[in-house]
């Protein structure tokens, strides 16, 4: 069985690097994307097993990316974990409509995030 593929999307390059480093050590293949439009293209092309998605993204925000994938029969099975720097209820509600599976508030604990990812990627 090949490595599971995770797409990490955030415009903070350094943050993506740390997550990538961590997840690769955990044995995952990690794809990185730094804006909404590119992440959508990558998701459609690579069909990852899970997506870590920031909300505030250039070009196309995370809500829209999530909605576009979750309303597409071909991709709606992909678990999407939203990363957000906001804690307001309102944001969570908008997120709910998009069909995201989880919300993680920055800063998060890599260990906990890894546990969460593992739970979603278990066969």
């Amino acid at each position: 069985m090949g490595k599971k593929k995770i797409l990490v999307v955030d415009d903070e390059v350094d943050l993506v690097k740390t997550i990538q480093f961590y997840l690769e050590l955990e044995g995952y293949q990690v794809l990185a994307s730094y804006n909404g439009e590119d992440s959508l293209n990558q998701a459609r092309k690579e069909n990852p097993d899970l997506i870590l998605l920031d909300i505030m993204l250039p070009k196309l925000d995370g809500y829209k990316v999530c909605r576009l994938l979750k309303f597409d029969e071909k991709y709606k099975h992909i678990p999407i974990l939203m990363m957000t720097a906001k804690t307001q209820e309102k944001d969570k509600l908008i997120g709910k409509e998009t069909g995201a599976n989880e919300y993680i508030i920055k800063p998060f604990d890599m260990e906990e995030l890894t546990q969460m990812i593992k739970a979603y990627l278990k066969d």
Partner: peptide, 8 residues
């Protein structure tokens, strides 16, 4: 966001 990077 920067805090998240530092923490990681």
């Amino acid at each position: 966001t920067p805090l998240a990077t530092i923490k990681n």
